[in-house]
């Protein structure tokens, strides 16, 4: 049987210059700090997803006999909390709610705020004025104050925490989306598309969104670190997540009474928040310089 070789039919790949996103990826890979940050974020996400299967102990089961064991106790590597629950298991399980509470509001706000900003920027005129002046009012509140006041008024709970954080992040995202869209709209290719008879929706879809999503997305990414700190801060105050659910901010709050007896133990949940937020910040910085964005 003759062996057919395909070699001669394989076209020599043409030297293509890498696309924008390929360049971004190449640049991102060359940045060791950004890669480390990405690895940490990935590890945290995997930890959150697989938490129920990797926890060494039941994170909800406490025993008053083994309350506040120090870090390094046999069987409880990171000690036990004020109700005798295994700290390591609670920290792992806590990744679920903490990340969920920190990341979700930013993504909902990215969607809503992005929509408001793109519409305001594209339509312009009085629509822009009404939308953006309303947004301006929310800028008169420092974000921490707005988040706490809102969830304080709505009451504790996961849903109320999510709602208040989402409302906090809509205005900044909308403002960025509006200014980027206004900038793009003035460019010649949008004028060309309009002149060739493209409708508003298809212009937004093909010409505006393609150029606007990148910067808005990176901006939203940079808010995740803030959102993590705020979300855990709400639970730390007694708003947001309610006991006995494991959440890092709430754990920090309930362990506050033990800072004189078990100082190291008390610092652990906050360390998790810190690691998460610094990883997201460095990831965003890496992404921003790889995409060659300013600011």
């Amino acid at each position: 049987m003759a062996v057919v070789t395909h070699d001669r039919f394989v076209a020599e790949p043409v030297e293509r210059s890498p696309s924008y996103w390929q360049t971004v990826l190449i640049r991102f890979r060359r940045d060791p700090v950004a890669m480390l940050a990405a690895a940490i974020v990935l590890a945290l996400l995997l930890m959150a997803i697989f938490a129920p299967w990797i926890v060494p102990q039941d994170p909800y089961k406490g025993l008053s006999l083994r309350r506040l064991k120090p870090v390094g106790t046999d069987g409880f590597i990171l000690g036990t909390d004020e109700l005798g629950r295994d700290m390591l298991s609670r920290l792992i399980m806590g990744a679920r709610l903490s990340l969920f509470m920190g990341v979700t509001p930013v993504f909902i706000a990215l969607f809503l705020g992005g929509a408001i900003g793109v519409v305001a920027g594209y339509v312009g005129g009085w629509v822009n004025t009404i939308l953006m002046r309303t947004i301006d009012v929310f800028f008169a509140f420092p974000s921490v104050l707005l988040a706490i006041a809102l969830s304080g008024a709505l009451g504790a709970g996961i849903a109320n925490g999510l709602i208040s954080l989402t409302i906090v992040f809509i205005p900044p995202i909308a403002r960025v989306a509006e200014s980027v869209t206004t900038g793009i709209r003035a460019r010649d290719f949008v004028e060309a598309a309009r002149a060739s008879g493209a409708g508003a929706l298809s212009i937004i879809r093909y010409h505006i969104l393609g150029n606007v999503l990148g910067p808005i997305f990176v901006y939203a990414m940079s808010l995740i670190a803030v959102s993590m700190i705020l979300a855990s801060g709400l639970s730390f105050l007694g708003l947001g997540v309610k006991p006995p659910e494991p959440e890092w901010g709430l754990m920090l709050n309930t362990l506050r009474t033990a800072i004189y007896t078990q100082p190291l133990l008390c610092a652990l949940p906050g360390l998790m928040i810190f690691i998460t937020s610094i990883a997201f910040n460095m990831l965003t910085d890496g992404l921003r310089s790889a995409m060659d964005l300013k600011g």
């Binding site: 855990s232 801060g233 800072i259 906050g270 360390l271 810190f274 910085d285």
Partner: peptide, 17 residues
Amino acid sequence: VIGVSVPHYWLGMVLVI
């Protein structure tokens, strides 16, 4: 970066500790 990433309420606790 540490300055903008640290949960300040936690930093406060650590300083108290």
